[in-house]
Amino acid sequence: MSGEAIAFYVLAAVTLGSGVVVVTSPNVVHSAVALVPTFLGVTGIYVLLSAEFVAVIQVLIYAGAITVLILFVIMLTEGGTGIRARQRNEQGAIGAAVAAAMAGLLIAVAVRTPWARLPGTLPTYTPGAIGQSFLGPNLLVFEGTSVVLLVSLVGAIVIARKEE
């Protein structure tokens, strides 16, 4: 087995293992903390796919910011008192069945489709290529995203603010 394959399986195990903890843990704080190894595992997958820039942004935004935000909100709302509360609704069995069916479907599609491959090679300096793409063919998407970012910034402040 090559080093890349070993790295892939280790990273996949970390991602899915801590993903299971996120999904099933009865303690919400444990779920939130388990998000960190999940995101870091996905970061490793990005590195394997030679997408270094996406990988660092993943650490910066997901592991460094979104997890902190989630932990913050858990501690501001019910915090530790949630340990005694029921965390799962009555749809456990149906949910599991739906998720399993979905997984089966997706995996079947992924395995059976003969994926085409376009010619070309990945650029060696990906941040530069990404920047060129953002300010070139994807300029409209870039601008649209920045508008959404501004709107959600304002929206989050308005929603979370205490009424006086």
Partner: peptide, 25 residues
Amino acid sequence: DLNVGVVYFAATSSLVVVGILMAGW
């Protein structure tokens, strides 16, 4: 010598806060 070194630094230094929140909690 990562070709995304500066962003990498910002990313890893932001991980500390997760540990601090965990310790506090």
